[in-house]
């Protein structure tokens, strides 16, 4: 226990490191480039119309959430092993950023479905499991909020963060075990009974690749870095408060 206590020290908050400044700039530029690719360079999908462009954010957002929740698993395992709070800070950053991205994924999907499927929501296996995943991480945040003791909170959150990843895997692979999902692939079929499929719209692959890089990697990493710094700050303030109280 003494060992755990000794490590329970937040680093003194520093000024924003220059690498993070550069990364922030890259992120802002990346978002602009991704939007240009999605809204200007990619051709309009002749079947689905303009709303199809939402896909260039929708799908990468899920992979961003996947990366962030993956970071939570890594943070959880490493915290349980090393008991260094920095790993727990990574885990909580992953959950919060992943939650935002998963929410974007869920809501943009719903908005896309309205003109295309003519409904905001359908109890499709993939949509349902995605909603369950979002709720699982909401439960994670409630679990954290429900525990006062810092060490207990970190331990429990680590364990739950590892378990919660099962729902992420479920979303990814439910399509394999339940093939009755109506969730689409990239290129759809003709609305009438044409004897073939459309040629792929131009620029889809480019917009998707840039989208994946930006929303799926750069944005979550930058946001998580800021969130880690915030958590460190909060830990530092708490430690200072404790010092004052015990003095």
């Amino acid at each position: 226990m003494a060992q755990a206590k000794a490590k329970d020290i937040a680093q003194e908050p520093t000024a924003t490191p220059s690498l993070l400044r550069i990364l922030t700039l890259v992120t802002v530029l990346g978002v602009v480039v991704a939007l240009v690719f999605a809204l200007v360079i990619a051709g309009t999908d002749i079947e689905q119309g303009e709303v199809q462009r939402i896909f260039y954010v929708h799908m990468p957002a899920f992979f961003g959430a996947f990366v962030a929740f993956g970071a939570t698993v890594l943070g959880g395992v490493m915290y349980l092993w090393k008991r260094d709070p920095k790993w727990d800070r990574l885990a909580v950053a992953g959950v919060e950023v992943g939650f935002a991205l998963a929410l974007i994924n869920l809501i943009t999907g719903s908005i896309w479905a309205r003109p295309i499927w003519n409904t905001w929501w359908t109890w499709d296996p993939r949509l349902t499991s995605e909603a369950i995943m979002v709720l699982t991480y909401a439960a994670y945040m409630m679990l954290r909020a429900g525990i006062d003791n810092v060490d207990t909170r970190r331990r429990f959150a680590s364990v739950y963060g590892i378990l919660a990843f099962a729902t992420v895997l479920l979303v990814l692979f439910i399509i394999r075990v339940r093939d009755d999902t109506i969730h689409p692939t990239v290129v759809g079929n003709s609305p009438q009974n044409a004897q073939g499929s459309f040629a792929a719209t131009s620029g889809v692959v480019g917009a998707l690749m840039v989208g994946l890089l930006v929303w799926g990697l750069i944005v979550p990493v930058t946001l998580m870095w800021y969130r880690i710094r915030l958590e460190n700050m909060l830990d530092w303030v708490n430690r200072k408060k404790m010092e004052v109280l015990s003095a």
């Binding site: 369950i132 995943m133 709720l135 699982t136 909401a138 439960a139 409630m142 679990l143 429900g146 525990i147 006062d148 429990f156 739950y160 378990l163 919660a164 099962a166 729902t167």
Partner: peptide
């Protein structure tokens, strides 16, 4: 935790 019974159902059912 503080919420106890309530928290178990929301933590357990999704998993």
């Amino acid at each position: 935790t503080r919420a106890r019974d309530a928290l178990l159902s929301i933590a357990m059912l999704p998993i």
